[in-house]
Design a protein around this nucleic acid. Structure first.
Lengths: 229, 229
DNA sequence: CGATTGTTTGACACGGTTCAAAGTGGGTGG
DNA sequence: CCACCCACTTTGAACCGTGTCAAACAATCG
């Protein structure tokens, strides 16, 4: 039980499945893949179901969560376009993954994907790297949940979304998820999350255009709160 | 940003570096390795220093932590005998690792170790698996910090130590670490940790022989609290 | 055996949760 | 196209768990 890592809010472009693959290798990957659509609220996979596929998000936003028998829920990640989903330790998924927006994913049958990994070393390497990034992400979350106050955690999330979104570098972030989702991601309640947003607004760090659209007014202050390390 | 897994409190024997290796392969590993001793309080590695080696714990207990500029500290893991330490994402360690007891580790120079991984597929596979276990561990911690109350978190830790310790199956657990270490692992303060122990004692779930030795009186109740999922 | 460090306990303050109610907005059907 | 409805969000007030500050206690080490 052990081990390292954690890119803070890396500007480093994260490794994707296709990083460094030749055209023909990409083609081979695409040949074993199929496209799948998930409507809002639909599930890509369920906790404890058989892990038969892995996926790449092509479009939309997914949410990864873990549910307990006692009804507690922990959101572990929000998966954006380009993200990889589905590496399981055992033969069952350990998480449920649902769509926050209409989503299209590329699906790779597990067996064929594993074989390709053996044939394409770079692919295997990418998967390893992606695993590392996921671990880094999890450890950032550990730090946030263990050490940060409510408004710092919210800053942390906003910053994550800001850094990860593709496209032009703007100061506006779309919060696709509900306050409940955010609360379950940050280990808080809806009300506390809401109050944290209000606080950030009052301090002039963000502007809240609608509940799901915030503009960053003071990026430095936000970053400072988000890291608080 | 994505991905699965989490063995609760697995009875499954965790993968070690040597799992499934032939005798000759083990020998080759040992040939590139050297033994190193760390006194109590000494450091095996420092956050941000160059990642030149990986290690296996042979004897003793290590603590892995992440420190922030603002002085906050998050303990990420307690590494026991058999654990693997040092896989870095980039060329620098992301954590500091120090010894809670006198420790002996087996050290593998990074470069040679990487080469061996290429030559021994099973070794590479083991490293991958260990990475998965670490991720699972991190996600368990996320769940604990996000969803559990103080006495549940303490139960969580006791249960982890109970499950991971080798040797005869007793009900006594040695807490090698200080209350401060526990607090920084669970995202609490010393006082809260102490009160949580007292509470578990008062409820007849554990007996506290000394601050560093507890006996589990009611394993089922403990497990229930520890999981609370 | 004393001194120092770590742990427990107590009293109080504060942040976050809970419970309740009032806004707000988006979607649907009339 | 508007009005209503439902789900979500915000705000308020009281409560509770955890943090903070302080002091007593215990254990360890020289």
């Amino acid at each position: 039980m052990t081990l390292p890592t954690a890119i803070k809010f890396a500007k480093t472009p994260l490794t994707t499945l296709f990083t460094g693959l030749s055209e023909s290798e990409v083609t081979r990957l695409n040949q074993i893949s199929s496209r799948r659509q998930i409507p809002v609220g639909g599930f890509l996979m369920h906790q404890h179901s058989e892990a038969n596929s892995v996926y790449i998000v092509e479009e939309g936003v997914l949410m990864m969560e873990r549910n307990s028998a006692t009804g507690r829920r922990q959101v572990v990640a929000f998966s954006l376009s380009g993200n990889f989903i589905g590496i399981a330790q055992n033969e069952f998924y350990e998480f449920s993954v649902s769509a926050l927006t209409p989503v299209t994913v590329k699906e790779f049958p597990m067996r064929a994907f594993m074989e390709l990994q053996e044939q394409i070393p770079q692919l295997k390497d990418n998967v390893r790297r992606i695993g590392g990034n996921i671990l880094a992400h999890a450890l950032d979350q550990v730090f946030a949940l263990g050490q940060k106050k409510a408004h710092e955690r919210v800053s942390f999330l906003i910053q994550q979304l800001l850094n990860r979104k593709s496209g032009p570098r703007t100061r506006v972030v779309e919060l696709v998820m509900t306050r409940q989702d955010i609360a379950d991601y940050l280990g808080l309640t809806i009300e506390t999350v809401s109050r944290a947003f209000t606080k950030l607004k009052q301090e002039g760090i963000i502007a809240i255009h609608s509940a799901h659209t915030v503009e960053i007014l003071d990026p430095d202050a936000l970053q400072e709160l988000a890291l608080s390390e």
